[in-house]
Simulated assay, not measured.
Amino acid sequence: MTNPTRRPVASLWIGPRLHYINQFCLLSHVQQGHPTTLYCTEAVENVPEGVIVRPATEIMDIDMEIVRQTSESFLSNVFRYKMIQKTNAIWIDCDAFCHKPFPDEMEHIYAGHGFRGALNCGVVYIPQQGALIDALLDYYDNLPDAPAWFNKQQRKRLDKQDSALPQAVRIYNAERTSFGPQAFTWFAQQTGDYERALSHDVLYPVPFQLNDVFFDPYGRVEGHFTDQTLSVHLYTNGTKPWWRKNVPLANSYAARMCEQTGVDPAKALEQ
């Protein structure tokens, strides 16, 4: 019996190869019945079968020089809202594992994470039309002299940036999360959508600070889950180098998810 077709999900990849964590996370959505699209800025050699590959330029023009001066996360933070507006898909980071399908009726998919209470946008869906998406896209398309939420210290760092740099680079250098969680949290507060956030256990059951537990063969990752958990973020941006370059230890969550999705981790290690 095949899974029913569910809501589309999508992500972005910059680079020629996926890590095994990215592979099993993307496949987890496919196997839960979600049509899963990976927008790419170049040819990716090891996309799992079942994942739809599309050029990122279908969503927006890509300025790779800006990406080189900032990071891949900068582009993805702009990309995700333009993608939602154009396709109505749920944005998923490539290190978010689909534990349960996203309900068809859920109109606001985002949550806080870690111990700080800020909203994360690693998994996010907001209505295609509305004050929140309008505010986010206006911010990215018409960058201010300084983000409205910057404190005195952040503004000082911004003022020290070379005025010849693109404004996006200046803001990023002053505060690297200015285009991600900070922006999303601020604008959600301004529009009243902050109160619509899901509890952290729905999308980020394991705090970022404890992300080593995914590779611990004796760690009980599922102890963090609740009946409401839909997605499990593995936070590859915080993964230690050893885990990136070696197969996961037997019985760890990472190893078990490889087995569950049919991914051979030895073929997709960081080089």
Rank of each mutant, 00 (worst) to 15 (best):
T2C: 14
P4K: 12
P8V: 00
A10W: 01
L12W: 00
P16Y: 09
R17K: 12
Y20D: 08
N22F: 00
Q23F: 03
F24T: 09
L27S: 06
V30N: 01
Q31N: 10
Q31S: 10
H34F: 11
P35K: 00
C40K: 04
C40Y: 04
T41L: 15
E42Y: 09
A43Q: 08
E45T: 14
N46R: 07
N46F: 08
V47D: 13
V51Q: 09
V51H: 07
V53P: 14
V53H: 04
A56E: 03
A56C: 15
T57V: 12
T57E: 15
I59Q: 01
M60E: 02
M64Q: 12
T70A: 13
S71C: 08
S71V: 11
E72F: 08
L75Q: 06
V78L: 07
R80L: 11
M83S: 07
Q85F: 11
Q85C: 06
K86H: 04
W91L: 10
P101Y: 00
P103C: 03
E105R: 10
E105K: 14
M106V: 13
E107W: 06
E107F: 13
G114S: 02
F115I: 12
A118N: 03
L119Q: 02
N120Y: 02
V123C: 15
Y125M: 10
I126N: 02
G130P: 06
L132Y: 03
L136S: 02
D138V: 05
Y140E: 00
D141R: 09
N142C: 06
D145R: 01
A146E: 07
A146D: 05
F150V: 01
N151A: 03
L158T: 15
L158Y: 06
D159I: 05
D159K: 15
D159P: 03
Q161P: 00
S163Y: 10
P166K: 14
A168S: 09
V169W: 01
I171C: 00
A174E: 03
R176G: 04
R176P: 00
T177W: 12
G180E: 02
Q182I: 13
A183N: 04
W186C: 00
Q190P: 13
Y194W: 15
S199Q: 11
P205Q: 02
F208R: 09
Q209L: 01
P217E: 07
G219Y: 11
G219M: 13
R220E: 06
E222C: 06
F225T: 14
Q228L: 03
Q228S: 15
H233T: 12
Y235I: 09
K240F: 03
W242Q: 06
R244Y: 03
R244K: 14
R244S: 03
N246P: 13
N251V: 10
A255G: 05
M257W: 10
C258N: 03
E259I: 14
Q260H: 11
G262V: 14
D264T: 09
D264G: 10
D264I: 09
K267T: 12
E270I: 13
E270Y: 09
